[in-house]
């Protein structure tokens, strides 16, 4: 069979097959309006810098470094506990109660940490309590807590609520770490 369609199809497909690794990049870069692209990139750079300065201003304004306390959540994925939410108490007063989306849980599982609380504390002794709420083995609702007494001095205080697998005990482990 010598159909002109076949010849055409073959030519097109051959190009596709040979250029398989090249097509996407070549198309993406074709006819790029260089000046406009540069302008947009420069706008984005300024936007990032603006957002950084806003972020720094907000921190200085709302939580000056002397009194600042930041609490983060990190969660390694485990087979024994599926995190839903975290409740945070400082000096027996609830300061945060956060329900995680699947996207956030995925980001946590891949090494990201979530800042659950940013606040101010006087110098001296304090106590932080965190409750990890989720689903335990066999689909049972589970609530596990961790407490830490800490001393707030001058300067920012960083606390990390951590969850990780305790393989030998075949359970999830929860604790709070000071940075």
């Amino acid at each position: 069979m010598s159909s002109p369609f076949l010849t055409k199809v073959l030519r097109r497909m051959r190009r596709l097959a040979v250029g398989i690794g090249l097509v996407a990049a070549a198309t993406a870069a074709a006819d790029e309006p260089v000046a406009l692209a540069d302008e947009i990139e420069s706008l984005k750079q300024e936007l990032l810098a603006l957002n950084r300065d806003l972020f720094l201003l907000e921190e200085d304004l709302l939580t000056p470094t002397d009194t600042q306390v930041l609490v983060f959540v990190s969660a390694e994925p485990t087979d024994w506990f599926q995190l839903d939410s975290v409740q945070l108490l400082i000096d027996n007063k609830e300061v945060a109660n956060y329900l995680y989306t699947p996207r956030e849980l995925d980001a946590l599982a891949r090494g990201g940490v979530h800042r659950i609380h940013r606040g101010n504390l006087d110098q001296g002794a304090h106590e932080v309590t965190a409750f990890f709420i989720g689903i335990g083995p066999e689909g049972r609702p589970m609530r596990r807590g961790a407490t830490l007494k800490f001393e707030k001095a001058l300067g920012p205080k960083y606390l990390e609520l951590q969850m990780a697998a305790d393989e030998p005990k075949r359970q999830a482990d929860f604790w709070i770490e000071e940075w």
Partner: peptide
């Protein structure tokens, strides 16, 4: 890694480049 660093990663992994970038740049500064 300091939690602030991993906070930037947290936003990046969710595709929020503006927030991730601002956090990373703030940390750099």
């Amino acid at each position: 890694l300091h939690p602030r660093h991993r906070e930037a990663l947290f936003y990046h992994l969710q595709g929020d480049s503006l927030e991730a970038g601002a956090h990373a740049m703030a940390l750099q500064s």
